[in-house]
Design a protein around this nucleic acid. Structure first.
Lengths: 215, 215, 215, 215
DNA sequence: CATGAATGAGGTTTCATTCAT
DNA sequence: TATGAATGAAACCTCATTCAT
């Protein structure tokens, strides 16, 4: 949220920050619409109505612009979801709320998430061709969710299972819920989310009927 | 498997088919290594050791080459998985076998699947910027798996749930299992697959303990 | 040394003159380090820690900045060498002292001389591509040295030779002494200068053994 | 003289070699006329009447084109001068013949030598800003000439002097003879060369009028 | 006086494609 | 069938310069 300072520690001026935000917005729109390959600096500039050179003036290069997009969108979604989880006491409740809040975020930030996906799966900065982000980018999410699952297991809410695999799978389910919804605009996102919540509740809950009840 | 005929209906000669296969192989390797953006026709040609023009000679353009890759890889994986499912009687068994066979295929076809993913998520042929494949590409898979789930539900093996959402989620789980394994080479793919099978068994099985037993 | 007035005849303020000097110093450093091509106004400004626009404010353009560099460095070296020659009576002595004093100047003004060379051999201001300075820039030096040689010849110290060729060659020897020393930092500059002095003493001295002795 | 093979060992086709030569010729002309800074690939292509991309097709980049120029011109001049020296028996004779042959070469290859100078003093390939050639490029010449001087000293033709300094100075004298002639088209190059020969004969010859031994 | 911001031309390079041989 | 050669557009980036504040 808070505007980043320059690499050399200097603050950015208000005007500069506004331009950067404007360019980032434009790049997000272009990415969502035309994909990574179709997003040239020229098109981004054209969409803003500025000269090509302005982007080079405000960003070190195309890579930095892309990284800024990832950083902003990621920060935004993390903040949103985390704020929703604070009030949940049980692990089961937190899992369901995670799915619900993510779905809600997706509905309101379709463009940003599309752009994020384009960059994460395509940006390569090193000459060896390795992805700058890729799926490794999800590692903090996996870690947090893994901790949640372990907590639920220790509390007896959850059956024993591999917490890492479950974490990866939950994220996969969320990502493809989004992708499916994008492709099928009439699809009911909330219903999908509820189905997912049920699905993972069944998949995780303790099998011993006498254990600590949830819901 | 069977070589496609030319658009004008003529058969392709054996030599021509061999060249096409060779170029496709090279393109798959390049896609897996350098990603969609890094895969230029020049690099593909260089890898085979032929002149750039040859590709244009054998394929109508870059798009057709990419489409051929999708077709070949997709046909191959479908054939493999379907042959594995024939012997499964129960829906539950078919689901577990699906996951196992897909995992097995992934282990042996890492490169092809990476390339497939690059093309599916990046190839755009129309000027409006729409993806040529995208997730809609999975529709036949969803349909088939949906039918499986309905069958299981009617047989009492499965609890009631939205078969479409479950289908999408299974595919998501498989795709990210692959992606995770690619990023973490030491990860145990088979164990992951078994965990997924357990996960979806719990997620789908009938809750009424008295109903038709599974397994 | 004395600050130039503005083209319109106005005097420059002290502050303005200081800024100009600061920018010139920075440009000299950049030229010496990165060469003419690598010396952009952006880099010069960055080195001083000022905005790019400041340079354009104080100088009519890149060309004027470069010309100012030439003027300052040239004025400085001329003043230094001329002051050393005042006390020399004989032409032979003056020649040796020229070489010695130039060498001494080179040792203490490596950066400035490197910058001077970059500008002299690269700056072009007219659209026809002609060098602004080039070797013609040495003409005053040639003239002065030619006069010295003629004086020596008339005094019988020097043998008959083409004074212009000798002048050009002395300057060439000095320039390449500098260039060689820059490339071979361990090279003994003073010894090189003495060798040059001997070389040109042999090359110039009167062959008639009975003539006015020197040294 | 002989066309270089490709880096991967393959021979170049006749047509390709012709194009490369044509582009190199054009670049030489542009360098001589407009200098290093004024020599863009676009201008070189325009002069040949080809598309910009052709240069990139035949050369790895601007740097390789420049290096090819250096290599060709250098090889040519070395071959010319060395062939002239074969018949000289004495060191004194070889020195005079060197000067004469270089002057003759200069008269007939003004453009090439101008281009060579531009590249040698300006081409930088490493990001640290170091010159690709610079004066270090003369090292083989210095070495050869140094050997000649030592031979002359041992034979008693030459007085004792620092052979390295003498070598550097001879080269400087030749280079500036060229530069002076370029700037003063009416200047008599042959006369200048004879003067230089006399100059260095006086500068090098044994002082003891009697004998083989010196000093 | 100084600055940050913007401009637009021009630089090198890569790319998919075409074509004569 | 295959190739080398060429094309021209478009990519990213740098540059000197201008201008409002």
């Amino acid at each position: 949220m808070r505007p980043e300072d320059k690499p050399d520690g200097q603050k950015r001026s208000f005007v500069e920050e506004a331009r950067r935000a404007q360019i980032i917005e434009s790049a997000i729109g272009t990415l969502a619409e035309l994909g990574y390959t179709g997003t040239s600096l020229a098109r981004v500039a054209e969409r803003v109505g500025i000269s090509k050179g302005v982007i080079s003036y405000h960003f070190a290069g195309k890579a930095e612009l892309m990284e800024q997009i990832v950083e902003r969108v990621y920060r935004d979604i993390a903040q949103f979801v985390l704020s929703r989880l604070e009030k949940e006491a049980t692990a089961t409740g937190a899992l369901r709320e995670t799915i619900r809040s993510v779905a809600e975020y997706m509905r309101d930030h379709r463009t940003q998430l599309l752009a994020l996906g384009e960059v994460v799966t395509n940006l390569r900065t090193t000459p060896d061709g390795a992805l700058r982000y890729g799926i490794a980018f999800n590692e903090p999410i996996y870690d947090a969710r893994e901790a949640l699952f372990r907590r639920g297991q220790q509390a007896g809410e959850f059956r024993p299972f591999d917490a890492r695999v479950m974490s990866v799978t939950v994220q996969a389910a969320l990502d493809d819920m989004f992708a499916y919804w994008v492709t099928h605009p009439g699809h009911d996102l909330e219903a999908h989310a509820e189905e997912l919540a049920d699905l993972f509740e069944h998949a995780t809950r303790s099998e011993d009927p006498g254990a600590t009840a949830n819901r």
